[in-house]
């Protein structure tokens, strides 16, 4: 049952605090997002800087970088995902416990970035696993990463835990190495190629 905001404020002045299960659970969940400790390229250096004292990701409860996917809530895909690395990234995501989230940090993880026309880089990790927050930049500054983390916190607070658990996806298929790329090239359940943009009439 939703409580009227005005009544809630009035009661708080009298020392009575009311909340809901979802709000309480989300408050806890959103303030202790433990990231998976791994980095793929130069974005990882900015991620490390965010964890150090100057930017201090601990202010948001995310300072505990776990070395095991079993103990992590958040995967920060920090850097270039090569075709050779992509199956391992999907496998690590599969090994994380629900509910789990992905931040795609930087141009490479989002779209392939400067390697977009190359032969060896995946054009976005969202082709295989569902990304929650994209952070632009090459690499993004620690401030940008913290902003992305705050966006993720907002997202967690806006959704009920029951819905998160009900929306559990199970394992995502791990791509295999083909003759010149991954097979399949993308997971159609997660990502579809953009519809071709019609060229404006001259």
């Amino acid at each position: 049952m939703a409580i009227e905001e005005g009544l809630k404020g009035e009661l708080q002045k009298q020392g009575v605090y009311l909340t809901t299960w979802d709000q309480l659970a989300n408050w806890g969940r959103s303030n202790s997002i433990w990231p998976l400790q791994f980095g793929l390229a130069c974005c990882a250096i900015e991620m490390i800087a965010s964890a150090a004292s100057r930017y201090d990701i601990a202010r948001f409860g995310s300072e505990i970088f776990r070395a095991s996917p079993r103990q992590a809530d958040l995967m920060i895909v920090a850097g270039t995902v090569t075709k050779k690395m992509a199956p391992q990234v999907v496998r690590l995501y599969n090994q994380m416990a629900e509910p789990k989230y992905i931040i795609s940090m930087g141009a490479c993880a989002t779209s392939g970035g400067p390697f977009h026309k190359g032969y060896n880089v995946l054009k976005g990790i969202d082709r295989f696993i569902p990304v929650d927050v994209y952070i632009p930049g090459c690499p993004p500054t620690p401030q940008a990463l913290l902003e992305g983390l705050m966006k993720l916190q907002e997202r967690i607070r806006s959704r009920g835990l029951a819905r998160e658990i009900a929306g559990k996806q199970g394992e995502y298929p791990i791509p295999a190495f083909g003759a010149n790329g991954l097979e399949p090239r993308y997971n159609p359940d997660v990502w579809q190629p953009p519809a071709s943009v019609p060229t404006p009439a001259a």
């Binding site: 032969y119 060896n120 190495f177």
Partner: peptide
């Protein structure tokens, strides 16, 4: 299992889409 040599000028890059 990779086929071809990607730094050769005539290498055709796969269409990931």
């Amino acid at each position: 299992g990779f086929v071809g040599h990607p730094m050769r000028k005539d290498y055709v890059i796969e269409d990931q889409d």
